[in-house]
C-alpha cells in the first residue's frame, strides 16, 4: 500500500465546505487545503488565510524599475562613466540638458510597470511554491469530480495536530460523505 498523504472528505455545496473550512480553521490545523471547482467568495476568511504577500514583491520590483530607468537614462546620456563593455556618452537631444528627470520619466515609468509585473508573477510563484508538477490529489479517484460538482477538503498527515483516529472522526462529523485516505 502506498504511503499516506492525509485524509480527504467530500462535500456537496459551497456552503457546506465553507462551514467545514471554518471548523477546521478553528480546530487549529495548519497543513490542509480545500479543492473546489470554482473560486468561492469568502473562502480566504473561512480558511483563516492572511492577505497575500505578493504586493510586497510588487513594490520592490517597482522601486527597482524606476531606479533602473532613471540610472539607465542618466548613464547613457548624461554621464561619462566607464563600465565593462559600456561607455557613458554625453549627448544633447532636442536641446535638453544631458540629464533631466522629466526626460527619463516615461522610460522609468514603463520599467516600473514592467518590473512590478515581473516581481508580482515571480512572487506569486515563490509564495505558491510553483512550479509544482504533481499533487497527491491528482491520483485521487474522484479528481474529476473536484473540477465539476464536488468539493473536497483534506488534512495532511504532517500537520502537528494530525492524529489518524481523531482527525478521521473530526472530518466524519463535518462531512456527510465518506472520509477516505489520500495516498502520496
Amino acid at each position: 500500500m502506498a504511503k499516506q498523504y492525509g485524509l480527504i472528505a467530500k462535500f456537496d455545496s459551497p456552503a457546506d465546505i465553507m462551514h467545514a473550512a471554518e471548523k477546521v480553521r478553528d480546530a487549529g490545523y495548519k497543513n490542509w487545503d480545500v479543492i473546489t471547482p470554482f473560486p468561492i467568495h469568502g473562502m480566504d476568511a473561512a480558511m483563516g488565510l492572511k492577505r497575500s504577500l505578493v504586493g510586497r514583491f510588487t513594490i520592490v520590483g517597482g522601486t527597482i524599475g524606476i531606479t533602473t530607468g532613471m540610472l539607465m537614462i542618466w548613464f547613457t546620456g548624461g554621464s561619462e562613466l566607464s563600465l565593462p563593455f559600456m561607455e557613458g556618452y554625453k549627448l544633447i537631444v532636442g536641446g535638453k540638458p544631458f540629464f533631466s528627470p522629466q526626460f527619463a520619466f516615461p522610460v522609468s515609468y514603463e520599467l516600473t510597470i514592467l518590473f512590478s509585473a515581473f516581481a508580482s508573477i515571480g512572487g506569486m510563484f515563490i509564495l505558491n511554491r510553483l512550479p509544482r508538477h504533481h499533487h497527491p490529489f491528482l491520483k485521487y479517484k474522484d479528481v474529476a469530480k473536484g473540477t465539476d460538482d464536488s468539493f473536497f477538503l483534506y488534512i495532511e498527515n504532517v500537520d502537528p495536530q494530525f492524529d489518524e483516529e481523531k482527525t478521521r472522526s473530526f472530518l466524519d462529523g463535518l462531512s456527510s460523505g465518506e472520509v477516505r485516505e489520500l495516498e502520496d
Binding site: G94, G95, K96, Q102, F103, F105, P106
Partner: peptide
Amino acid sequence: QYFLIWNAN
C-alpha cells in the same frame, strides 16, 4: 500635459 509642453519647448 507638462511633458509634451516641456519637450516641444
